[in-house]
Amino acid sequence: MLLRALSQLNFRNLLTPRLTFGPGVTAVVGRNAAGKSNLLEAAYLGLTGELPYGKISETVRLGETEGYVSVSVERDDGIVSTQIGLAPGKKLIRLDGQTVRTFELAKATAAVLITPEDADLVHGAPALRRGYLDTLLSKLSPRYALLHREYTRVVDQRNAALKHPDAALKVWTERFIELGNAVGALRSRALVKVAEIAADTYAEISGDDKPLGVSLTGAHENLADALSESEFEERARGVTVVGPHRGDLLLTLGGHSVQTYGSRGEARTTALSLRVAEYSLLSEKHREAPVLLLDDFTAELDAGRREFLLRLAARAPQAIVSGTEAPPHAAAQLFISGGQVRAEP
């Protein structure tokens, strides 16, 4: 799919109201703090209804109360448009004028954003890695999106029930086990593919013989058993301590944890491999490639990774690549400074 147009009002420091894009690589060139990342973030928000990091209401330009991001996307089967409201409070997503939920937007449009911050996927808190998996799975399967939302709600209700146990706790526990097992099963099944693609990608980038392993911790064959083993801790703390909401992605190189023993470079390559898995699974799901957004490729100092990023962008039907300089072979160039986008430097 191709991002054809991006319109915005009051999104961070962006001033240009409307931009158009073509196929191939579009370079977004600017100095630091010129608004390169904001432009890519706006495109990502318009295409997915989500921000990579942070809250949507915090993207409204300082001093303004509302705004929007809107994109027009050319798919193999026609043109769709989205509009995302930035006002605080309620998340407003429209697809071709109809209000939809985030996972419904994911049926129509898709984007993958690769940023230097992705290293946090490896070194950050488990919630980031869970978020990676849950977000990806929600896009791949609406059933997972709803199931996961229901599961999260049941965990919250069960935690409240644990603090004041009554006759209904049993039912919350039963629902927790049922939904938790279902979420766990879908995750494990999806993880096989993620792990395979990520491992292949890692090998391609690094040329290394240490294989990348991606597995789930906290995945229980049956939550009922895990739950009875944790009963004591659960009662003492008043929260549900086992289940998919506590799971983590375990990333290993040659069997050793990347989080603990990996170098910075290994962590970055691992994170990049996870993003490539996302790109490839979304391509498979949509039967056409998502829009690839490559933020600040010039921040990538490692020759191998940088070359891989540029290859990835060149292979993609459409890639928007930002940096302090243009990548080679860009089909179009945009220059940005102070939030203003121009066709000339």
Binding site: D156, Q157, A160, A161, H164, D166, A167, A168, V171, W172
Partner: peptide
């Protein structure tokens, strides 16, 4: 409906 978060139990 049952909702421990809102203090609603069977009673």
């Amino acid at each position: 409906a049952l909702s421990p978060m809102n203090g609603v139990g069977p009673d």
